[in-house]
Design a protein around this nucleic acid. Structure first.
Lengths: 299, 299
DNA sequence: TTTTTGTCAATATAATTACTCGACAAGATA
DNA sequence: TATCTTGTCGAGTAATTATATTGACAAAAA
């Protein structure tokens, strides 16, 4: 029915400033003096930054923090900027995520939670996931793996994030009438963050989410799909071995009704062979599109 | 009143609508028709809701959802509203916990979460833990063990409860100045609910809680206590074997400074031998007393 | 010193949010 | 059935917040 043209999302100046950790004045100054970014403009003249503009600004900032001068790098393209930014020695936390990592190191739960929920409330669920939750979880994981972050800090981060995302998982009035979708991870797959973020995005996209969490046995998944009369089952695969994943998927596809879609996401799905009856969800935009299709069918 | 220097935080209409789950139109209609709430007004005339207005709206909504008519209850005061909301006239399930279990069986996440947060907001943290969360968790565990409740339902319950308790774990202004207490469970002890509820009670009692969650290595616990300069470390033991527990406790008591209290709680502590330097916390009242002592020493 | 760079102030405009009044329809009640 | 209650919506206007531009200034770097 409606034009399903995915209009690229854009952000106004203030949001962009928060997301990049740069002040609004500085954003304007960089644009005016060096044309460092060229955001779109509304008919009225206000700036609208696209995702590529945000990336550019983040790289510019990284390079400046690393010691470069803005006048020297403002004209570089994205690829060149990536190289310019690699020399990093950033002690002062200026982006929200840096600040959060800093409070994690100090085990300052109050500060960390405050910052998180502030971001969620100002950005809204979708932007929060894209720009805060996902990058933060990735960064925490990497630093923890490298031994730069204590287990305590990792627990603090995971726990706070899970609570916040979980409390945001309340279905809205709009999503209550939408198509049922069950979210979970299969057995032996303990990574919960990804599927939680997906579930949150799904709610915002208008689906009625049943979130079952990690490590759900296959029989239980099938029964749950039946109980809530779900139109789709969404699974996240991260650490599960390809063999185990194949087994789970085959069994699910075999025993689920054909009309129930089976969606797979997560960093581990690259290893999995695509086949009929399985849909790979590579990012949240794809997920939203799938749900939009279901919503249309529903109504 | 002539004073009004205290800058009590207020919320505009849109934020209030999101926080209460009521539409802006409805908020205005309730005010216009029944004077159900009387928010402050800016000089320009826009509404500014205080915390008490939010509470009132939440209770009104709860009562309406429970079957009351807005016209009948709009004039009641907060105390009467609490009563009106709790006494629901839902016929089938007799107690709120029965109703929650019923929605769990149907995997009705929306209904379950709604009921839970309603109880938390009407009862307050302490009574919620005592009268809802703890009995519910016990009941779910038992029914799951008996096979009367699916794993999916158990996951749903655990997830929702953990999110709700976790989001209630935000330190209050009062607790921020209080004595630091670290809450966690030792390695191989995965039961999280008990220690979470204890942490929630501790916040209400005025301590500054650092909640690290389950399965914390001993060395990390020691380091965390040092990092936040905690006055006590609270552990919960449920499924851990007495031998493992003894080992953990000995090591902790040996390596922790003497001035740091070590508190043990949970159903598994009965097996553990009492000794100097260890305090058994048998219930939440005891916990509150211990914290009250620390608060006195603090000031 | 001269240039670069971040910040700020003043003033105007744009975009968003909110206000009131009036109306209407679906459901509850008499 | 007739009436009342209750949630929602629209139109037109106002208040509030966010943003734009220009010009300037001081600290830091060259």
């Amino acid at each position: 029915m409606t034009e399903a043209v995915t209009t690229e999302p854009t952000y106004p100046l203030g949001i962009t400033a928060r997301l990049t950790g740069l002040s609004p004045e500085l954003l304007r100054a960089w644009e005016r003096r060096y044309a460092a970014v060229e955001p779109l403009r509304t008919p009225g003249g206000t700036r609208r930054y696209r995702a590529r503009d945000l990336e550019r600004l983040r790289l510019l900032k990284a390079a400046v923090v690393a010691g470069k001068r803005i006048g020297q790098i403002a004209h570089l393209d994205l690829e060149q900027l990536r190289h310019a930014a690699v020399v990093s020695d950033s002690p002062a936390p200026s982006s929200p995520i840096e600040a959060m990592l800093d409070s994690l190191v100090r085990l300052d739960a109050a500060e960390f939670q405050r910052a998180l929920s502030l971001q969620l409330s100002t950005l809204g669920p979708r932007r929060f996931v894209d720009h805060i939750a996902a990058p933060l979880a990735r960064e925490v994981g990497e630093r923890w793996a490298r031994g730069e972050l204590s287990i305590a800090a990792e627990h603090l981060s995971t726990g706070a994030l899970r609570s916040l995302l979980g409390s945001a998982l309340q279905p809205s009035s709009k999503s209550l009438g939408g198509p049922q979708v069950v979210f979970a991870t299969p057995p032996k797959e303990g990574h919960e963050m990804g599927i939680m973020m997906a579930a949150l995005a799904a709610i915002e996209a208008g689906s009625n989410v049943t979130y079952l969490g990690p490590n759900m046995p296959v029989e239980e998944l099938i029964q749950a799909v039946e109980t809530v009369d779900a139109a789709a089952l969404a699974l996240s695969i991260v650490t599960l071995s390809p063999d185990d994943a194949e087994h789970v998927i085959s069994q699910l596809r075999e025993e689920l009704p054909d009309k129930v879609a089976l969606w797979l996401g997560g960093s581990g799905v690259g290893e999995i062979e695509s086949r009929p009856g399985i849909e790979m969800i590579t990012d949240l935009d794809t997920l939203e599109q799938r749900i939009a299709l279901l919503v249309e069918q529903c109504s």
